[in-house]
Design a protein around this nucleic acid. Structure first.
Lengths: 327, 327
DNA sequence: AAGCATGATTTGATCGTTCAAATATGAGAT
DNA sequence: ATCTCATATTTGAACGATCAAATCATGCTT
């Protein structure tokens, strides 16, 4: 850490004005090529780095992206968010942004956090990582004309697509799992998921259902739902298998449920999220491309922050099936 | 987000000067109680929030704490860092700080990241979360007179304790595990750990060794080491059990190793880190108080940033044993 | 009642950058 | 040689806060 090189130091050393240095760095076109090179050399030589605080005060841009970090609730899939976070930090850095963390318990608290952050550090954008029905955060951000991307589709009844989002196609994931089971010869394939109402869960169930339907295979009565967890998954799967002894395979909405299902009987099982646990116990699971999802979020944000109006876009990424012993 | 309330707006509305508002907020003692209350009321009413960028420009303080985020390498213990990060964000928020993320691959890259960050967003402090032997980052930070705390003791040959750190007492953890096994009647207790040289690993091994020694039980030949992983753990444990058929319990340096060890034979097994995997498969494991560790880091940083010279301190926290089916 | 210390509040300057407007430079046209 | 027009560069102001020093009150001492 040198003794704080300012733009004035660079200007003096290069024999130009402050503004020319600024232009050489930020508006390359406006400065004569020769001058630009000279300035950049001096910048390099003195190790000049723009002072964000000063820039932010003038431009109103902080080059900060804020995202919430949660305690790993269910534990098993905790690392999903972790992987996303890492991808986001890397992608953001490449685009010249940094990631700022905050915590909040519930929508109201998160909105308070928005206000807090906007008053203080003024992040240029937010990334919302777990959208849900009737998400009040989204309407708040829209109402306040703020920039953000959600990782997760707008599940709610809100005016569709009024904001940019990135998501992983859960249905495609369970569809791939189901196809895999079909290819392995299974015909009676059940589904263990979450109670209806969660967009993510319904989506994953749909992938299983439509795949069976298009294969001309009946699926009536082959669904059980439970709140996420290993024990609950086992109970649900046991119930399903007892009622349908001919079922030979189970597609599950999460690795936790899948782990439970696996203990419920000698059937093929697939999970979702490709968590470390799945890797360790050899569970076939759907892998989300989180690094790409994060990169897409940043790409979308870049366009939005650049003021590109055509940027109100969506991206739906396709997950991949990681086949292991369990199926 | 109102239309940006500045300190001047508050001053006008409260009938005082800018500086008095500033003092009311930052130096409560210097302003008359009555005035202070009036100012704070107006602050509340207008929803004033200090603009960090402006403050930072003047004071040089950003109220930002930077920490690296890694891809979850080994996967199993990935969530450990995640939990720490969450704790850090919460503790930091309580102290009026925000957490800024960065990535870096290797010490040199991380030092470059330090320079980058210091030139731009100027974090007030760094938290280094995985210290290792001959950690060049630490000497760089010390040389440059920067504020930081490490989560992890200085294992190296560096002048001891020249910087504040927080750590969890790994030896105490394995000691607790060993005592638990002794209490359960086990007498021949092996250890599956990592190759010597890693401070963390050596520490965990020491806890096992000293506990057995003080119980007057021989431990010669009961150690096997392997790089972290389930398969490697299984192989190491199998080798140990084959050579010592009388061994009835194994203390392991990680949950990954423990999972492997469990598959190696019908013995009692304890792991380390209390990862989600351990929870799911019923593995007895040593739980690190990560939220407290994070809070301690922030507490230390607060004192350091306040300029308290007596703050060059250490904190060694004690982990707890979570007993499950495996032992 | 004048002098003084102490406390409370205000004033001007400043942090480092970029915006907006002003000025300088140079090539081409007349 | 003068004027235009475009390009290149410089100058002052401003962003919003805090620091340092100055000013204003107030009570106490002698």
């Amino acid at each position: 850490m040198a003794d704080k090189v300012t733009i004035a130091d660079v200007a003096r050393a290069a024999g130009v004005s402050r503004q020319t240095v600024s232009n050489a760095l930020n508006a390359p076109g406006v400065v004569r090529e020769e001058t630009r090179r000279r300035v950049l050399d001096v910048v390099e030589e003195l190790g000049y780095r723009v002072n964000q605080a000063a820039r932010q005060m003038r431009t109103g841009r902080s080059r900060l992206i804020a995202i919430r970090i949660d305690p790993d609730q269910d534990g098993v899939s905790g690392s999903v968010h972790d992987r996303f976070l890492h991808g986001l930090t890397e992608a953001a850095a490449k685009a010249g942004y940094r990631v700022l963390l905050y915590t909040a318990d519930g929508d109201a608290a998160e909105i308070a956090a928005f206000e807090d952050l906007l008053g203080a550090h003024e992040p240029d954008a937010f990334v919302l990582a777990s959208t849900h029905h009737g998400d009040r955060r989204i309407s708040w951000l829209l109402d306040n004309d703020l920039r953000f991307v959600t990782f997760g589709r707008p599940w709610s009844d809100l005016p569709n697509a009024r904001h940019p989002w990135v998501d992983v196609d859960g249905a495609a994931g369970t569809a791939a799992a189901t196809r895999h089971l079909l290819a392995a010869g299974h015909r009676r394939i059940g589904f263990v998921g979450w109670p209806p109402g969660s967009g993510v869960g319904d989506d994953r169930q749909a992938g299983w259902a439509t795949t069976l339907a298009s294969a001309g295979i009946a699926a009536a009565g082959l669904i059980r739902v439970a709140t996420d967890g290993v024990a609950t998954g086992e109970a649900a799967a046991r119930d399903l298998l007892t009622a349908n002894p001919d079922v030979t395979a189970l597609v599950c909405a999460s690795d936790s449920l899948a782990l439970g299902a696996r203990a419920a009987g000698p059937v093929a099982v697939t999970g979702f999220d490709d968590t470390p646990v799945a890797r360790v116990v050899g569970l076939t699971s759907v892998h989300q491309p989180l690094a790409e999802a994060a990169a897409s979020c940043v790409a979308l944000l870049e366009r939005i922050l650049a003021g590109d109006p055509s940027a109100r876009t969506h991206m739906l990424l396709t997950p991949s099936l990681i086949v292991r012993q369990s199926a």
